[in-house]
Design a protein around this nucleic acid. Structure first.
Length: 270
DNA sequence: AGTCGCCTGGTA
DNA sequence: TACCAGGCGACT
């Protein structure tokens, strides 16, 4: 569920809420979501304090004072909530990290696809991140053009490939392609320089809008305090099948592309 | 490139 | 009842 803007919002929230807090205990009721295991994680992080929060791609990363690093992937339905200990359990709460100051970091996940991994040291951490492409908000035009011309895959499929470019998910891929007026099924290497540039600008524009509105909560996403984001009120095409395209007078259509729901306007996206 | 699996829920 | 869901890795 959470893509770059949602994880970025949580990262910013956590930086405010839990940096400096000490880890007191860790529990889970879904052992498989904790890697390598609850007992190892507990042994390695209890007593350490939270030093810094980071995001890379769609990963949320917590650096601890003893050099250990916790990496979270929220997949489709993960949430990270910071609650006072006296607040009743949250829905689908599966991992709890008890913190000093009577706070808890709660990892909640309806579909249980998400995970939390402990990295013993910087080396292990680096190897976890090595496969990702450049950050979508940081990649330069030249690098982006190289990524595009490296393949004949459909452009939308490429944008979702974290190994090529990191942070974009289905919502922002659909909206960016609409803003750039590019057909999602176009071959990546068929874009001309003008289209390449327009696409990169559009990607960065919709991601920044996502961050500005604190993420898209049309389905499941909540920020670290349990509040909804508002980007769903600003979707360009995502989840708007049958409605009017904002670029032109066309109608937003929904098709399947590489198994994923894809929203676009066939009138102006060419 | 396409399909399946991991899981659970909401909606047609 | 069937299908859909913002991710992603393994498999063919």
């Amino acid at each position: 569920m959470p893509e770059l803007p949602e994880v970025e919002t949580i990262k910013n929230d956590l930086s405010r809420l839990v940096v400096g807090k000490k880890v007191l205990d860790v529990t889970t009721d879904t052992a498989k979501q904790v890697v390598p295991s609850l007992s190892v994680v507990k042994k390695q992080i209890v007593g350490a304090s939270i030093k810094k929060i980071q995001r890379r791609a769609k990963l949320l990363i917590i650096h601890l004072s003893n050099g250990k690093i916790l990496v979270f992937h929220l997949k489709l339905t993960g949430r990270i909530l910071i609650r006072k200990t006296n607040i009743p359990r949250d829905d689908w709460q599966h991992i709890t990290i008890f913190l000093s100051g009577n706070k808890e970091l709660r990892f909640c996940d309806l579909r249980k696809f998400g995970w939390m991994k402990l990295m013993k040291n910087g080396k292990e951490f680096d190897s976890e991140l090595v496969g990702f492409g450049p950050e979508a908000l940081e990649v330069k035009l030249k690098g982006f053009q190289q990524i595009l011309s490296s393949t004949t895959r459909a452009i939308k499929v490429l944008l979702l490939d974290q190994k090529k470019i990191a942070g974009i998910g289905n919502i922002y891929a659909c909206d960016a392609l609409n803003l750039a007026k590019i057909d999602p099924t176009r071959k990546s290497n068929s874009l001309n320089p003008n289209e390449q540039k327009k696409l990169l600008l559009s990607i960065q524009k919709v991601l920044k809008a996502g961050i500005k509105y604190r993420g898209a909560s049309d389905q499941f996403y909540l920020d670290a305090l349990g509040h909804k984001g508002a980007y769903q009120e600003h979707f360009l095409v995502y989840a708007r099948a049958g409605e009017k395209c904002f670029n032109c007078h066309g109608k937003v259509e929904k098709v399947k592309l590489a198994g994923r729901g894809t929203y676009y306007c066939s009138a102006c996206q060419v």
